[in-house]
Design a protein around this nucleic acid. Sequence first.
DNA 1: GAGTTACGCTACGGGGCGTAGCGGAATGGG
DNA 2: CCCATTCCGCTACGCCCCGTAGCGTAACTC
Lengths: 208, 208
Amino acid sequence: MAGCPAPRRGRPRSAAADRAILDATRTALVEVGWSKLTMGEVARRAGVAKTTLYRRWAAKSELVVDAVAVLFDELELPDGGSLRADIEGVVLSFAALLRRPEAKTALMAVLAESTTDEALRRRIRAAIVDRQKRLVLDGRARAQQRGELPPDSADPAETERVVDLIFDVIAGAVVHRSLVSDCPVDGAWAATFTTLLLEGLGSASAPR
Amino acid sequence: MAGCPAPRRGRPRSAAADRAILDATRTALVEVGWSKLTMGEVARRAGVAKTTLYRRWAAKSELVVDAVAVLFDELELPDGGSLRADIEGVVLSFAALLRRPEAKTALMAVLAESTTDEALRRRIRAAIVDRQKRLVLDGRARAQQRGELPPDSADPAETERVVDLIFDVIAGAVVHRSLVSDCPVDGAWAATFTTLLLEGLGSASAPR
DNA sequence: GAGTTACGCTACGGGGCGTAGCGGAATGGG
DNA sequence: CCCATTCCGCTACGCCCCGTAGCGTAACTC
């Protein structure tokens, strides 16, 4: 990807314009929503010409993916000292991210577009999804060091299946709770969810 | 709600037009996707005037909610004889629904719009989400009859929290796996997921 | 300086949006 | 039977956004 840091000849693209455009995209997204977000409006807010936008992004969806991708980089997983604490931590920090209007609106909108656009799906995975999955890998490695989880299976494919499964369960549950059921992901919910994830259905349905 | 089945005076609305419009919406959604779906195009395919559409639905998102709501009525939960079988069954049938292009495109698109539209959120919950949650209630009641799950807690609010949690975990995981990770939800995945849900993290990460 | 690339600006055809206004069709009430 | 009421199809309209083309200018490399 980054094979060309070599400065090509001619006038270079303005990095300031890039930042202004992405910032304007995020703020405009909060104020007007996805469907009323127009390229012209973004250009006006960013103080650049509309043509400059089209020279860099072919579609609104691609622009928005890049604009919100940085938000997902802010996700961190501080060591909570136990697997339970780490799971609750990642649940709460992901939920906090989804509480930001530009994050939830953008995420759902580009996912909707991606259902009929294979290239956009790849772009989303690279810019957003894979950056989240890294948190699962971190937490899992820590838990294995503590002895809370068994070490990796001999079969690396088996390991990847398990990691993917856990990722889909955690991220899926938080997204569904936040955006579909439209209920708050607070400490109490995170605790109950973590208990279910750690101990399974029988235990979670009986009050501790 | 249904306080007025009393036929008002004047010419009644055409039920045939309703069906034609909703059918046209679904087929058009598959062919052109959400962002290029226009009211005019739906009207043309349905063989009705564009004004007739606007007399019944104020926005594209509301039309699409109603158009796909019937798909979610098709979800059934045949008694599989065990809690495990019932969970795998609902996972697979929900995944099959999400494999239909009009279902996944419509679901994600209206959810995206709903992040900035409270009325639309309510409409989606009534038309789609609550109809899915009924499956969790059914499966849970069956498992309790079989003795696989403890009976309801004395506190009905506690019961509702548990049902909501299970619903968000199952539906969220299936949606995330299908539409975000973009991987197939097949029998093997359903089995692994069900094991995780029933027995918790420690058991699922170790091969059986 | 010469060549190359990016920028801002303007202008344009195309198309969807949502509404208004019309004549006509289908219903129920006097 | 006729009238009031409501819906329907059709046409037309102003508005806004799209995405591109063309121009002169600015920034950078060789």
